[in-house]
């Protein structure tokens, strides 16, 4: 072969391939917006630049697949979701969760605490601390993350705002009112359910482990609501001791852990914890921090696991 054949031949092959696999899709992929599309605000776009500059894309995808179960799996990604993404931030790894629908999953204050040091809210996280960004930039980054999911995120954000107002008012009215307010939003049948699993050393040990992995960052090692995330959160994390003698039940604990308390930093754990784990961490809190447990007092047919 002559050098000319090598160079011109390979360039011709490349040109033909580019025409098919790059140019053809470029001109044929629709750029019509999807039904959840909206434009980003200037603050959100500034946050996006911070997201790009710090390589968030290496650990967080924005690409929900048909086979996903995790965060955001309610909506499968469509090409119309990305029309304004410049560059597109699909990502190639999920060291952290997918963020396509992260907007409104948590209130802003949760993100502030989480960005400063992710282990304050998520003790097992391996995300880097972003304290170096400073308060202003973390606010912008939060604005971007809260826009992920676009119109769907806006709905969740509105919900967060509404319940933040109500939960703040309840907190500021003092422990008596706050506890009553919290309990009153648990459906009545749940309020009456006792924890069906009896307290055992094994169950408490498991509950302890789950408490450490999921709860301790906000509620603190002794359940007084003074975990490392506390300074950034308002209303602050619940001090469990105020629940004593105020009508707490295993069912209330279960319901609040499962669904979370929208508007506050308390997330829902239904995706992360299966039934037994929720009962056991609830009983751990009830036994050690509230000192009032109804575990195993529910009646019914004696369960096979009971001693």
């Amino acid at each position: 072969m002559t050098p000319r054949i090598v160079v011109i031949g390979s360039l011709l092959i490349l040109a033909a391939v580019v025409l098919v696999v790059v140019a053809l899709p470029f001109y044929t992929v629709s750029d019509a917006p999807s039904e959840i599309y909206r434009q980003r605000t200037d603050e959100e776009l500034a946050g996006k630049q911070i997201y790009i500059a710090n390589g968030c894309v290496y650990c967080h995808s924005q690409s929900i697949r048909t086979i996903d179960w995790g965060l955001g799996a309610e909506r499968i990604a469509q090409s119309g979701d990305y029309i304004d993404d410049h560059p597109i931030l699909l990502g190639s790894a999920r060291t952290g969760p997918d963020l396509s629908q992260e907007g409104g999953e948590h209130p802003d204050d949760w993100h502030m605490a989480h960005f400063k040091n992710p282990r304050t809210t998520r003790p097992n996280s391996i995300m880097p601390p972003f304290l170096f960004l400073g308060e202003e930039n973390i606010k912008k980054l939060t604005a971007y993350v809260q826009s992920l999911g676009m119109i769907m995120a806006d709905k969740r954000i509105a919900r967060q705002r509404k319940w933040k107002e109500l939960s703040t008012a309840a907190f500021e009215a003092g422990p008596e009112v706050n506890v009553k307010w919290l309990h009153s939003h648990v459906p009545e049948p749940w309020q009456k359910i006792a924890n069906p699993y009896p307290t055992t050393p094994g169950a408490l040990a498991r509950g302890h482990k789950i408490y450490q992995d999921f709860c301790m960052g906000c509620h603190g090692p002794v359940g007084d609501g003074m975990g490392p995330a506390q300074p950034d959160l308002y209303p602050p994390p619940l001090n469990f001791t105020i629940l004593k003698d105020r009508g707490i039940s295993g069912g209330i604990l279960y319901y609040q852990i499962m669904n979370g308390i929208t508007g506050t930093a308390m997330p829902y754990f239904k995706k992360e914890l299966e039934s037994e784990k929720i009962w056991e961490v609830g009983d751990y809190v009830a036994v050690y921090f509230i000192n009032e447990s109804d575990a195993g007092q529910g009646g019914g047919i004696d369960a096979a696991f009971e001693n």
């Binding site: 580019v18 696999v21 790059v22 899709p25 470029f26 992929v29 750029d31 090409s79 990305y82 029309i83 304004d84 993404d85 410049h86 560059p87 597109i88 699909l90």
Partner: peptide, 16 residues
């Protein structure tokens, strides 16, 4: 300024 296209064609070009 961006070194990128917009949307899905950007992903296609990037991985090409």
């Amino acid at each position: 300024d961006t070194g990128a296209l917009k949307g899905i064609p950007d992903a296609i070009l990037l991985w090409f």
